[in-house]
């Protein structure tokens, strides 16, 4: 399991025979940029939900039975 996920494009001789192409450096950069953008988008969504919750509920967000 670990070798399949980590060795897919990492030069593992077993995997090199696979039909999956090796990513070029440019493709790896693009993939990294996509991952960073997705991470930022998810982070922004979390922040948006937090801020909207505070804005809609105000101090009432803390007003709940314990």
């Amino acid at each position: 399991m670990a070798s399949a996920s980590s060795g897919r494009f990492s030069g593992d001789p077993m995997v090199q025979q696979s039909p999956l192409p090796r990513l070029t450096p440019e493709e790896q950069k693009r993939r990294r940029r996509r991952s960073v953008a997705l991470g930022l988008a998810l982070g922004a969504l979390v922040l948006l939900f937090y801020v909207v919750t505070i804005a809609k509920l105000g101090p009432g967000v803390l007003n709940r039975p314990l």
């Binding site: 039909p19 999956l20 990513l23 493709e27 693009r30 996509r34």
Partner: peptide
Amino acid sequence: AVVTAGLSQGD
């Protein structure tokens, strides 16, 4: 082949 393998080409 890259696309078939499920890997995006897009930036």
